[in-house]
Design a protein around this nucleic acid. Structure first.
Lengths: 114, 114
DNA sequence: GGGGTATATTCCCAAAAAGGCATATATCTG
DNA sequence: CAGATATATGCCTTTTTGGGAATATACCCC
């Protein structure tokens, strides 16, 4: 039950769902997500921690950056199912479409390292 | 997005998940759920409202009682999918098993109408 | 080692959520 | 109609949650 609730809570926040939908398109670092979501960096980090604790995303350090990506969900049937469905769910959501459309223009080389 | 969040939030609370798992076994009135969950009646009513607003359950008046049951989920793909999966998810959860086991002994004729 | 950058953590605040008690509403019974 | 019962609503309190600012940590480059 605890695992199930943890996954459901993790996906109960719009910004966290946006993160998942973005990560369907590419691996991203924190500052890229910050730029896409237009919220403060610590807020992004906290959302990422919640998603990671739920087994929905994983992180990998690459020098100064931390790359976040979706897990394969093999550790949890709840994650596996929801990540699978979220591949088509919300695809026609206007707001999600807007964010995804702008993703290619958000490149860490331009945003970070100023 | 709003619909999706509403459904996820509705299923992010242990007591509401317990309600769904109970309703998989039988239609129940508020006082039966109150007895099963061991929380105050107004709390049950409020949880039911949240689940109903999300399209997860429906209610039907029967005299003094209000019977609650699961929807078929046809109004929402999120509901349809989650209700479908919740038919097997948490089936081996100890706490859920306990509640389900006691369901037959919770009969409105004995609990209500004192 | 020192300066700069990316990320995580801490602290604080405002808003939301969950619970209970009291009360309102609706229905049944006599 | 009056009393009893089932459910819903309102109010209040406590806890949780999301956000930001400041700070700590880790890494890179010189």
């Amino acid at each position: 039950m605890r695992d199930f609730i943890r996954v459901m809570k993790a996906l109960s926040d719009p910004n966290r769902v946006r993160i998942v939908k973005m990560l369907q398109h590419k691996v991203m670092c924190v500052c890229e997500m910050r730029a896409a979501l237009k919220i403060a960096q610590p807020s992004v980090s906290k959302h990422l921690k919640i998603l990671e604790d739920a087994g929905i995303i994983t992180s990998q350090k690459e020098g100064m950056w931390v790359n976040y990506g979706l897990t394969d969900g093999s550790a949890s049937p709840y994650v596996a199912n929801l990540l699978g469905n979220l591949r088509h769910w919300l695809e026609d959501d206007a707001e999600i479409a807007d964010i995804v459309e702008e993703l290619p223009s958000i490149r860490r080389e331009e945003i970070c390292r100023k």
